[in-house]
Amino acid sequence: MATPTTGAIKARVRLGDRVFSSSTVFAGSLILVLLAAVAIFLIVQSIPAITAKAGTLPNAAPNFWVYVWPLVFGTVWAAAIALVIAIPISIGVALFISHYAPRKLSQGLGYVIDLLAAVPSVVFGLWGVLVLAKGIQPFFVWLNENLGWIPLFGGVVSGTGKTVLTVAIVLAVMVLPIMTAVCREIFLQTPVLHEEAALALGATRWEMIRVAVLPFARPGIISASMLGLGRALGETLAVAMVLSPAIVINFFLLTAQNPNTIAANIALQFPEASGVGINTLIASGLVLFVITFIVNAIARIAVNRRKAFSGAN
């Protein structure tokens, strides 16, 4: 009757536990399958475009890479300008909320900035083209007349304001909330002892921020920028509505001939595309997917490394 007890006591295996735990594993694996499916289906549909002969592709491109190259340039170019605008402002806003605004106000102010994230991209597009582009055009004329010797502001200035610089401003506004949110979190995690030590040594508030907060937050700022870059690269409708596109590669910010972005090109061409045209658009989507995947992966790795070394957790 008395069975010899060998080894550790084993818990009874219950049916509910089995079902529940395996369904959670199933759901988790489903996400991996889904991500793989996204890649696989896009690749399968892209193959006809990548192998297409000259003459079948849109824009009379000899092969797919010639077709997609101006779009890749436009995507990266618009996102890069947006980031140049957004990084200093988002750091400033995050610092304002975390270190300058009165403690009672700061949460409310953060919520106000988050409201920007709640506005759908199509509304930003509408605002960008009907309000911003019209309002900012005289400023573009002024820039062109007075600073036209800088190559960026050269060329024939656009009469509608639908230029790559307007797009970049709209994109900067759109990525601002996510970048601010990440920066704010990191700034708030700065060890209070470091801040107090700096203040105790007689540092002013700005010196305290420069010696204690910013060095601690640098990896966080980098990853926030990469997240913002990922958003800006993939943004579709705002660009499609605001930009007046052309098939060109140039660095002029104020002209009517602007390089288009991958996402906006898909949105504009897809409803009328047919045959290999559809495959070409899907293939360009695949290129965009790869670019954003790399950018986001870098951002995440930067965040995770920070976690490992900061000692804050």
Binding site: I31, L32, L34, L35, A37, V38, F41, L42, V44, Q45, L227, G230, R231, L233, G234, E235, T236, A263, I266, A267, L281, I282, G285, L286, L288, F289, T292, F293, V295, N296, A297, A299, R300
Partner: peptide, 20 residues
């Protein structure tokens, strides 16, 4: 990691995936 990466999928790529 994949969930993090998935957060950054451009919305138009999701549309293309569903279409494909």
């Amino acid at each position: 990691f994949m969930v993090d990466v998935m957060t950054g999928i451009p919305s138009i790529v999701a549309g293309l995936f569903a279409y494909a």
